[in-house]
Design a protein around this nucleic acid. Structure first.
Lengths: 225, 225
DNA sequence: AAGTCAATTATTTTGGAAAATATATCCGGA
DNA sequence: TCCGGATATATTTTCCAAAATAATTGACTT
């Protein structure tokens, strides 16, 4: 499906490889928030030269997953309540905006994609047999939300959105147990789909904002209360 | 005013220096949109090693001022009507959002800063004696808009906003002559100030969106019509 | 003890050469 | 002429060692 291109199986650059594995390690919190990332150590652990490491770290900094101080190296970005709250707020606002544009510009084909993505999501249950969030479900979930915004025609906004998605993923991992809290995801998603198909910008914005905020509220109230 | 720190006059890293001069060259369009940026040439023109050049380019890529293709090097980001339109749209939306939050959270001190910034802006005229946009005015203009959003408490949003500001600055340079077109900036800014001081979120959002959109409309209709 | 300064060690930053890859040129065959 | 592929050239990517800077230690003074 993706690309099994017969001819040129383009080898990624070392930088791209390292970027990927480093990002995963941060998102899965194998590298804890705040950890210093020294080149010497990284060189050993990831078996890489300094240049691609530097470049990968720099890229991660632009995604907000690491922070750097001039001449003092890099650290895994810290986490905080306020940070999580802002991420959720902005995800709501950005998606509300992108959905509004998609409603204005999207045709029946787009509607079809939304319907199909919801259908696929609906068929799977969120929690797998092991009690963890189901990997497949997670994929469908992402694709449903992507479908909603897919006709907004704002590539820069989509770039910002991707960055926030990444950052949110890390918190999701940190708070994974709270995320299995009882919550009627399916009803929320169906309501969003219906508002979108009704081409109701105000309502879909309200729902998508609430959708993102609910997640963070659940995490934070559980962790504090 | 800035920092004339007596003790440690921290020398910036070579990367930071190069980043600065490269960014300026792009913003002032001494490096035209689309231009390929080869390391050999850059090495000569900017008298720098490859490592800091690479890092600077990477950073500029994260700001959207250059684009890179794996193993094919970097180019100055191209410009387009759609690109400009999206920048203007997002600047309107982001600032509307940030102003809304500032209105909710800001105190009298914030109001004072807004009033002061408007006052300073008002005293200067936009077009200098040479017929170009006045440098001083431009500084006050930026500070007025910064004051409006300064209490939003959303650092990530401010980061995104900074990136869009940079990108917009390049278009402003490209279209500099059209920007001196007759337009009652002062009245627009006063209206925004008043809506903010009335703590009217809806109205301030409407005005700030229109403010950004008007600029792009002027540029585009002139260039096409 | 607390503070200063120098010496030592740890770490980041930089330049450039080597390796890997992409692009351009050239040549022969349909 | 146009295509395919081989060769040559141009360019990016990577490694690594040297330089620059920051952090730590310890001796000395008050």
């Amino acid at each position: 499906m993706e690309q099994t291109s017969v001819s040129t199986a383009r080898s990624p650059t070392r930088t791209a490889e390292i970027l990927d594995v480093l990002r995963t390690d941060i998102l899965e919190t194998r590298l804890q928030p705040g950890t210093r990332l020294r080149f010497d150590e990284l060189r050993r652990s990831y078996d890489a030269g300094i240049s691609p490491l530097r470049e990968a770290l720099m890229h991660l900094a632009s995604e907000g997953l690491v922070v750097s101080e001039e001449r003092r190296g890099y650290r895994v970005a810290p986490v905080s309540e306020d940070d999580l709250r802002e991420i959720a707020k902005l995800r709501g606002e950005f998606d509300a905006l992108a959905i509004a544009e998609s409603i204005r510009r999207g045709d029946e084909l787009w509607e079809g994609r939304v319907i199909a993505a919801f259908h696929a999501l609906q068929k799977r249950s969120k929690i797998g047999p092991d009690g963890e969030i189901d990997r497949e479900w997670e994929g469908h979930h992402i694709r449903f939300h992507d479908a909603l915004v897919s006709e907004c025609g704002m590539p820069k906004l989509m770039g910002f959105r991707t960055i926030l998605d990444l950052q949110a993923r890390r918190y999701r991992r940190i708070a994974v147990h709270y995320l299995t809290a009882p919550r009627d995801d399916l009803a929320e998603h169906r309501a969003i789909r219906d508002a979108v198909l009704d081409r109701d910008i105000t309502e879909s914005g309200r729902l998508i904002r609430a959708h993102f905020m609910r997640t963070v509220d659940i995490i934070l109230t559980r962790q504090l209360g």
